[in-house]
Amino acid sequence: MKIFKTLERYMEKPDAEYIASGHRACQGCAEVLALRLAFKVLGKDTILAMATGCMEIISTPLPLTCWRLPWIHIAFENTAAVASGIESAIRILTQKGKLENKKINIVGIAGDGGTSDIGFQALSGALERGHRLIYICLDNEAYMNTGIQRSSSTPYGAFTTTSPPGKKSIGQSTWKKDMPKIAAAHNIPYVATACPSYPYDLFNKVKKAKEVNGPAYLHILSVCPTGWRIPSEMAIEYGRLAVRSGVFPLYEVENGVYRITFKPESLIPVKDYIKGQGRFRHLTDKEISEIQDRVNKDWERLTKLCEITKA
């Protein structure tokens, strides 16, 4: 398989699957795809701590599990703390000679609610303490597991069941919380955004996250056909549109240096991303242009950050 040859640059075993089929993710779920791809890079020597959420609930109905890596789920808000505990245990047990001395990737995984809302404090603590762990936020922009409620990561104007548009409401009335930059503000060695629609970019970033000495934060846009109200086959394409419109720029922050990793020649209009998504159906042209203005400003700011932090 020629694709396997290409992938060998990023991973030892391209054909290894660490999430078994038979998981119960919705049709076209790009979130489980993001994990499938990320784990290929992380490989066998990985321990996962996962928050309550879609990926937890689709994977482990007793007595079955789709995980082929050691996996633990405790609760919703504490993934980073659980991962901290695992990392500390592995470190001390290795130091004491109770475990073989080899590198194990400790990975905390949560959705956008489990990261930017309820798990925010535990995450901040873990990043500040400097554990050698990788935290992956799978951002599908709402509480999809409980039925599409808004989170602080839901984009402005989006319909959710708790931010419904109406005569007196545009839908989500606040702007998306900028988690990657908040993570970067902890001055950790590596922060990146990624999207499975750009698999090679994602592979690169997981590989870097795996190699840094200290916390790494990966924020992965995970298109949710169910919650975004799009056809299941369009999950990859909408990720692409999010990136190409500048709504979700792909960038990384390596030791404080910002770098855009995928720079479109010119950004496509935000409207091209928004139209076709049921969650934005109610937006007027005026409202869309308001979003466009915001995206322009954010893009400009990101570009400047890249310039001023350049070594």
Binding site: A20, G22, S59, T65, C66, L69
Partner: peptide, 19 residues
């Protein structure tokens, strides 16, 4: 029949569930 703590020690057993 359940393991202590309901631990599942058959990795990838979800293959039994045919989606």
């Amino acid at each position: 029949d359940l393991n202590v703590g309901c631990v599942i020690d058959e990795p990838g057993s979800s293959l039994e569930y045919k989606t």
